[in-house]
């Protein structure tokens, strides 16, 4: 079976590296009956519409990012925002996978594809160019590159969130168009931010989890059961490998930051809580919108928040 695999990431990225190892493993465990050709770095698949592209058969398998879709896949796309305040990716992943089992709508939304792995983003923090942030009041007046999800929270504390493309961010930090960026430890090295920021403030912006690897459903249906079984047996392996690689990249990022003289600032727990609270209303709004569409939004939100209170 000659199958194609497409990813928007490169093999130097932790996700791409996990895919590479996974491909080797699948080929080995099927005794070479499955042979996979990989296309990296957006050469065959986009991140915004990857699910649709996979569904249409542009590739047989792909790294998908339903969270970056501009519409559709409501539960998959919107519920990761419910994980605000979480700081342990492993915990996020556990809670999320639990949700997937409990609410079949997650899988139904991705009906045209068969999910083969999950991804959890490591938490992002505040990286600053000139001035440190020790309390949330220090955010006032700062211009910060941020994903759309965090712009509202930044605004609460008088900071401006800028949804600038990632490619522009480095020069913008270098020249001071931006005062900072919300990005994970890993980006200190992988995106070279360690070279242009002075401070790393551990104010968490959790990213939640999502179904990240999948196979086109028709291709899946065409495979014999024993081959399908190999893929199914490796869902957890791939998911864990991905997390492992991400955590390693976090460490490398931290080390690079230290090397570049970045000052790491630990912010008080009370401040973190105060910050997390600002996400409450927008999360509730998202949940209610989902409810209106007949989806279990509030139910999921409730569950995610409860799991946070009881352990994390």
């Amino acid at each position: 079976f000659n199958l194609t695999y497409a990813s928007p990431y490169s093999t130097t990225h932790p996700y791409g590296a996990a895919d590479e190892a996974w491909i080797e493993r699948i080929e080995e465990q099927t005794n070479g009956r499955v042979d996979i050709t990989a296309y990296w770095g957006r050469s065959l698949i986009s991140s915004r519409e990857g699910v649709d592209e996979l569904e249409a058969g542009i590739a047989d398998m792909a790294y998908i990012t339903p969270i970056y879709a501009t519409s559709g896949y409501e539960l998959n796309r919107l519920t990761p925002a419910f994980f605000y305040g979480y700081s342990d990716p492993a915990h996020v992943l556990a809670v999320y996978q639990q949700l997937w089992e409990e609410f079949p709508t997650f899988a139904e939304e991705l009906g045209g594809v068969r999910v083969l792995g999950f991804n959890v983003g490591t938490p992002m923090h505040l990286q600053l160019r000139d001035d440190p942030v020790n309390t949330l009041d220090d955010l006032r007046g700062l211009r910060i590159r941020s994903a759309n999800d965090y712009i509202g929270a930044l605004a609460e504390f008088g900071a401006e969130g800028v949804a600038m493309p990632m490619g522009d961010t480095y020069p913008a930090l270098q020249r001071g168009v931006l005062d900072g960026v919300i990005a994970p430890y890993e980006a200190l090295k992988s995106l070279s931010f360690g070279e242009v920021v002075e401070y790393y403030v551990d104010l968490p912006h959790s990213r939640g989890a999502y179904a990240s690897r999948a196979m086109n459903q028709a291709v899946w249906d065409s495979l014999p059961e024993d081959i399908q079984a190999v893929f199914l047996d490796n869902i957890d392996w791939l998911t864990q490998k991905n997390l492992e690689n991400s955590m390693e990249a976090e460490e490398e990022g931290k080390a690079f930051g230290v090397e570049q003289g970045v000052t790491f600032i630990e912010i008080a727990a009370s401040e973190k809580e105060r910050y997390a609270e600002t996400f409450t209303s927008s999360a509730r709004e998202v949940a209610e919108n989902l409810d209106e569409r007949g989806l279990p939004g509030s139910e999921i939100l409730e569950q995610v928040r409860q799991a946070h209170q009881t352990s994390d």
Binding site: D52, T70, S71, G72, N148, I151, A163
Partner: peptide
């Protein structure tokens, strides 16, 4: 058509795309 079906909205500003 897909965008209409999904009621696609512009991020942040929220108007229909």
């Amino acid at each position: 058509l897909k965008s209409a079906r999904n009621q696609e909205q512009a991020p942040i500003l929220g108007f229909p795309v």
